[in-house]
Write a protein that binds this DNA or RNA. Structure first.
Lengths: 154, 154
DNA sequence: AGCATATTGACAATCATTATCAATTAATAT
DNA sequence: ATATTAATTGATAATGATTGTCAATATGCT
């Protein structure tokens, strides 16, 4: 956790940027909600709870900054907005996402079986992969149970 | 090709909706640009070239309709907008996308090695997959060549 | 402490998309 | 063919998310 703050400080120093209260507060808010896949508005709302003086623009600006550093990643999960998650330090590739088409819940799944596919892509297309994103759509445990119950009743 | 028009007509009849000149024109425009991953605005601009009387709202409405039918699919390719592609009729799963982080080009790649992963997901999480989307980021053939040339010079 | 300038918040502006609504038009019955 | 009815359309306003502007403020350095 503390790691990320250090990372931010180093990046700012390196670039000649400044460490501000707002940037710390926003990073903190994001770190305290790891795993929730918040979008910008939701982060803004959370920040405002404790620090109503912080403006929207600053939140957006800081999110971009954190993304640039690689502390957070943004992704599209189906509803129009970009949702963010905290980078996991030991992960080689980003984990996959399981998105429920019934309730919208987002689960994570670790796995790295894409190496062979990436080799095949290079062979066939001379496309050199540096990263990948995988999303699975379907029914989460809960919704699956509900669905099956309903089908029995009919 | 003609297939899609038939599909549209059948859907409209089934739902009691109407077959309009605008809907045909918009579908036509999309079909004539298969493979380009256009976004809504780009589709709108192309439609207007030949049919300036068609309004934006109608284009958006028709895109939703076509997506609903399954004639086109929308996806996020990194720039903020949703980009669409024509469904391929014989494909079981949607193909994968190779997105160049240098020039933004989008290539397609057919492959279906995710079956085992989906089984594993069900085992571990009881999440029942119905579809998946995979994006690979990296350097396309052209940009890779340029990049290597540059590195040699340095 | 003082200085140069990065940063901020308020607000306007933009961009993509959606809602509203009166006028138009396609599909059906006559 | 014509009338009827409701789906559809285009223009435009409205929305929602994000970005730009700019004067006021605060940070990091000397």
């Amino acid at each position: 956790m503390q790691n990320y703050t250090t990372q931010l400080k180093e990046y700012l120093k390196e670039k000649g940027y400044r460490l501000t209260e707002q940037r710390l507060v926003i990073l903190d808010t994001i770190l305290n909600n790891t795993g929730k896949h918040l979008n910008s508005q939701e982060i803004y709302d959370l920040v405002k709870e404790k620090h109503p003086e912080v403006g929207v623009a600053t939140v957006y600006r800081t999110i971009s900054l954190l993304e640039e550093i690689g502390i957070i990643y943004g992704g599209d999960f189906g509803d129009g907005s970009v949702r963010y998650e905290v980078a996991k330090e030991h992960e080689q590739h980003r984990h996959h996402h399981l998105i429920c088409i019934e309730c919208g819940s987002i689960e994570e799944f670790e796995d790295d079986l894409l190496g062979p596919v990436e080799n095949e892509i290079y062979k066939q297309k001379q496309f050199k992969t540096t990263d990948h994103r995988v999303k699975f759509y379907g029914y989460c445990k809960n919704c699956l149970a509900k669905k099956e119950k309903k089908e029995v009743q009919e």
